[in-house]
Simulated scan of single mutants.
Amino acid sequence: MRTSQIFLRSGLTVAAVAALPLTLTAPSAAAFGSGISVSTSGSSVSVTTNSCPSNGSSFGNASLLANGQVNFSQGRQMPLSGTSATQSAVWSNVGAGTYTVVVVCQDGTTAGTQSVIVSTSAVPKVTKTPRISSTSLPSLPSLPSSPSRGVMGGLGGATRDYGTATLVGGGALVTSGVVATAWYLRRRAKPHRL
């Protein structure tokens, strides 16, 4: 069953590709006596004609025949609407496949017949967004509380507060080191006497 569906889809694709150059290079459908123009957009099929005169109340009907349907009455019928210059009909929610559009004017004459291929690749699929309940969410671990005195700064173990005597002693050591270094470098720069 799956294999036959794949062959059917690939056959429709090949037919569409083979017909594409013909439709791009062919003159308008009216030149062939069709009298109608058929187009698709997603899952919608529309037909336009200017061949059906009005009898005052209607222009006629258009029918969308699925594969295997051969009679106008078997298809999905839509009344033509518009003006005396242009009449049209639109079918929505059309499934993928090959269809034939037939337009019959209110006076009984056939304005034209044309085949059309509807592809599902252009039809967006709408999916429901799942609802998330609060009971399905995992609980997060609790964070530790912040320190009561704020953040203590410093390098390594330098978080202790030193007194004035310690600061003065450290300053004296640094000063004596700088003086001793200067004396040594100056003494070394002088030439020695013999």
Rank of each mutant, 00 (worst) to 15 (best):
R2H: 10
R2W: 08
I6C: 03
F7W: 11
F7Y: 11
F7P: 05
F7E: 10
R9M: 08
A16N: 13
V17H: 13
A18P: 13
L20T: 15
L22Q: 06
L22E: 06
T23N: 15
T23I: 15
S28N: 14
S28R: 14
A30T: 13
A31Y: 13
V38D: 02
S39Q: 09
T40Y: 07
S41V: 10
G42Q: 09
S43C: 06
V45C: 09
T48Q: 13
S51V: 00
S57C: 12
S58D: 13
S58G: 08
F59K: 06
A62T: 04
L64S: 03
A66N: 07
Q69F: 14
F72I: 10
Q77R: 10
M78L: 11
M78V: 11
P79T: 08
P79A: 09
G82W: 13
G82R: 14
Q87R: 12
V90G: 09
A96Y: 09
Y99N: 04
T100V: 08
Q106E: 12
D107C: 15
D107M: 14
A111P: 00
T113W: 00
Q114E: 02
I117W: 05
S119W: 03
T120F: 06
T120S: 07
S121V: 10
A122T: 09
P124Y: 08
P124G: 02
V126T: 11
T127C: 03
K128L: 04
S139H: 07
S139P: 06
L140R: 11
P141F: 07
S145N: 06
P147W: 01
V151L: 06
M152P: 00
G153K: 09
L155T: 03
G157M: 06
G157D: 10
A158E: 07
T159H: 08
R160S: 07
D161H: 06
G163N: 08
T164D: 05
A165V: 10
G169F: 12
V179P: 01
A180M: 09
A180H: 03
A180K: 03
A180V: 08
A182K: 07
W183C: 10
W183T: 11
Y184L: 09
R187H: 07
H192Q: 15
H192N: 13
